[in-house]
Amino acid sequence: MNILNNDINGKIKSDDQTIPQGKRVFWQQGGGDGERDYIDICIKFEVILNGPGYAGPLNDETIQILHDDGISKIAIADRKRFAFIMKSGDIVALKIGLQKIYAVGIVVGDYQWSDLFGDVDGWSIQHVRRVKWLWVAPKDSEGQYLPKDFKANVLKQGTTLLLDNPKVLQWIDSLHLDFTKKYEVKDLPAVDSKKVQIEEIAEFLYAKGTSSNSIERLVSAIDDLQMIAKWYKSVDYVSEFETESYLIIPLLRALGWTPQKMAVEWKNVDIAIFNRLPREDQNLIAVVEAKRKGKSCLMAYSQAYNYAKDKENCNRLIVSDGLRYGIFVKHQKKYKLHAYMNITDFRERYEIYDCAGIKEAIWAMTPDWHYDA
């Protein structure tokens, strides 16, 4: 693969990017978009990420797979810059959009591929570069980042691009960061690639006291939902109503919730779940916020929280696009991501979210669930 071409001026050309040889290079790297944000993951694990990475480490073979799958030449060029042009010692500004920077750091080591990041809120972004963050945006009292906001479009549209805007470079210089030291990063967690079998889910639920008849119905329903979900992966547009009707509600029914205790479009809640009748605020036990297929489900947490925050007995928030589910549970008046699951890819655990996988997710959506400290 001819990744680099030297021109007569002693510069390196990589597609539309021209990089001076022998000089430290500054990059801008996306950490999400208006819909999805994985800034916290990048900072916590000292990484920058790119994708799609489902085909495996970037090489001739996997590039051809991406091309055959319809990934554009521009997008493939972006991945080549990330894997083959960026180098250890380069400087990275982690950004979202065209105006905001959340962190600045130095690249440490070579390109890697890690399945640890195989499902980041639905994105397959296993292409990895390690970065020692030297400046990170502060947070406000609510734990939200306060990024450097240039109030103007000073950054470029794209994931991995050269950073050459004078205003941004001057601001980075004003931080007086030490780019001359040799930095190390902490090891990434081991990837638990263990796939969970449906029989394991059944055994887990049986141990929790679920009846064998209920488990049998659930296993049958999951088989059907997996087929529907896999088919939906090939469909460009699936409405939120379809997500609710054909994926989320059938799963909730299979888990034991009756129609009487599930209200659809109840007081601006997509699906309200009650532990008893009548359908009143004091009986609300869980809120389900649905997104259409392909949209971020975890970013829907704030919307679900706003519905539930003043409902004392609401102990679960469930966010889903029909394929993926995030279950937040309330403990000591605070909600925390308890489990995450992908109905087409059963996993034991998700290290990037420090939460359980499909077994605990399924259990946490049942009527019999209770919080175990």
Rank of each mutant, 00 (worst) to 15 (best):
A83D: 01
D173C: 01
L146H: 06
G158C: 08
V108I: 15
L98C: 00
G89L: 11
D90W: 05
V131Q: 03
K132V: 03
R130D: 00
G51P: 04
V136I: 15
Y38A: 11
L175Q: 13
V104N: 07
I91H: 09
I63V: 14
I101S: 07
F82K: 12
P138D: 14
A77N: 13
K132Q: 03
D140K: 04
L94Q: 01
K87V: 07
V47K: 09
V154M: 13
L98N: 13
Y145N: 03
Q126V: 11
V47R: 03
Q112E: 15
P147Q: 02
D40E: 13
K87Y: 00
F117Y: 05
V104D: 08
D60E: 14
Y38E: 00
D173N: 13
Y102P: 08
L169T: 06
S174P: 02
I172Q: 09
P138L: 09
I65G: 00
W113N: 11
V168T: 07
Q170K: 15
V168F: 09
D78M: 10
K80T: 01
I91Q: 07
K148E: 09
D68K: 13
K95D: 03
P138K: 14
I39A: 08
Y54W: 15
I48D: 07
N165H: 15
A152H: 12
A75M: 11
T159I: 10
L94S: 03
R129K: 14
H127G: 02
A137G: 09
L161M: 10
V131K: 05
N153W: 03
V128S: 03
A103G: 14
W135P: 00
S72V: 08
I39D: 01
D140P: 00
D110S: 14
I71E: 10
L175M: 11
D149L: 12
I74S: 12
L169S: 03
G70P: 06
P138Q: 04
V154K: 12
P166Q: 10
K148P: 00
F82S: 06
F117Q: 01
K132N: 05
Y102R: 04
G122W: 14
K73E: 08
I125Q: 08
V136M: 03
S124A: 15
V107R: 07
G158E: 07
I125S: 02
K139Q: 13
G51Q: 11
T159D: 05
G97A: 12
R130H: 07
G109E: 04
D149I: 10
K87C: 05
N165K: 04
I101L: 02
E142Y: 10
E61S: 13
D37P: 00
D121A: 06
P57W: 02
D110E: 14
H67I: 03
D40A: 12
T160A: 09
I63M: 14
C42T: 08
D69R: 15
V108G: 00
S174M: 08
D115V: 06
D121Y: 08
D173L: 06
V107F: 01
G53I: 06
I71A: 09
Y111P: 02
H67N: 12
L163V: 06
I76Y: 02
I85S: 14
E61F: 11
G122I: 14
G158Q: 04
L94D: 06
I74E: 15
D90G: 08
I85F: 10
I43V: 15
N50K: 04
L116F: 12
R81K: 13
K139V: 05
N50H: 06
G51W: 07
E46Q: 15
H67F: 11
F117V: 01
I106T: 12
Q99W: 02
